[in-house]
Simulated assay, not measured.
Amino acid sequence: MPGQVPPRPPAPLPPRPGSIVPPKLPQLPKFVRKVKPSAWIELAVAVPWLWWSWLSIQFLGVPWRGLYWIGLAVWGVSAAVVVLHPRAEDLLAWRVHRLRPPSAWESQRLGPAWWAVCTAAGVDPDRYRVWVHEGPEATAPITPGSSVAVTSWAVYSLPPRHLEAVLAHELAHHLAVPRAVSLLLYWLALPARLMGRVIVFCLRHRVLSILAKIVIGFLLVGVLGVWFYLGFSHYVVFLLSPFLAPVLAPWAGRTQEKLADRAAVDLGYGEFLAEVFTGREVQRAQAWHNAPRPGLKGAQPLDSVRLRALERLLTSTPQRGL
């Protein structure tokens, strides 16, 4: 199957000299508790996305009510297909997230590293499919379901133990929320995401931007009017969510990345992950490149910020096996 890491070896391989043999299931409950805050953040962010997706489908019924019921049926049936059919998840990873299956050489590097990380976490490595994301970053964007993304930079540049640390970070994202729930939340939020892209396109267009600003201004005045006459309530929060999403959604992504780093520390990969970010800073210094400054809209925290957080965590949390 495309993107699937080679199957596990028939028998456990002997440990390499100087390598750390991670314990199995006894560490799993503590590790799962570390990823629970990330699950709550993802579920909290999904609520307004789902609400606006429902409103987006309601907009289809403005010219004709039958379009609303057709859109609602397509919305629900397609979500069930994505959750139940593995091939649909592969197409989602390939077409939407722009991931690719690893080559033969990449699979040789990823196979043992992925097996070691899943053994440390006490999970079955065959439950997931590892894909490659073309990018220069240390960690890949968060993907739903059982599709685990790792950057090509990590595959080609990192030693085996450091590659395991990056994979431990990626695994933490997928242990936060079950596969079916994460896929369902992502797919059901697609209408709202598409509507957001349409709005951004209109704002960037010279002529359509005027109409889009008028609509947004009218909506904001209406929300403030509801707030003034009916008082503050959860309904007002939902109406204000599109104006807060450009700041809150990236903040939630950065927080999830930091929580995944903490989970990697709990698995014993904290020092290796810190060395990954240290190497990134050294490479930038040697090439005289400044670190990207995404600001409030960046979903990935800066490598220097993650490195400082890891250093503070490592000084207060002893690494097992080190």
Rank of each mutant, 00 (worst) to 15 (best):
G3F: 08
V5A: 10
P9N: 07
P15T: 09
R16N: 04
S19V: 12
V21I: 10
K24M: 03
P26V: 12
P29C: 09
R33L: 15
P37G: 07
L43Y: 13
L43M: 13
V47Y: 05
V47Q: 12
S53N: 04
V62Q: 11
P63V: 13
R65T: 13
G66W: 10
L67A: 10
L72D: 05
V77D: 03
S78W: 04
A80P: 03
A80G: 02
P86C: 12
D90E: 14
R95V: 14
V96Y: 07
L99K: 03
R100Y: 12
E106C: 07
A113R: 06
W114L: 02
V123F: 07
D124E: 14
R129V: 07
V130H: 01
E134W: 11
E137Y: 12
P144T: 10
T151W: 05
S152E: 10
V155S: 00
V155Q: 01
V155R: 00
Y156D: 07
L158H: 00
L158E: 01
R161N: 04
R161G: 00
L175W: 01
A180Y: 02
L184T: 13
Y186C: 06
L190K: 06
A192N: 12
A192P: 01
V198N: 01
F201Y: 09
C202T: 05
H205Q: 14
S209A: 14
L211C: 08
A212T: 07
I216P: 01
I216W: 00
G217I: 09
F218G: 08
L219Q: 14
V223G: 03
L230A: 14
V236Y: 02
L240N: 03
P250C: 11
W251K: 01
W251V: 07
A252H: 03
R254K: 12
V265M: 07
E275H: 02
F277D: 01
T278Y: 12
Q283T: 02
R284D: 04
Q286P: 01
A287R: 13
N290P: 01
P292H: 09
P292T: 13
A299V: 14
S304L: 10
V305M: 07
A309Q: 12
E311K: 07
L313H: 05
L313Q: 11
L314F: 09
S316F: 11
T317R: 14
Q319D: 11
Q319V: 15
G321R: 13
G321W: 06
G321C: 11
L322F: 10
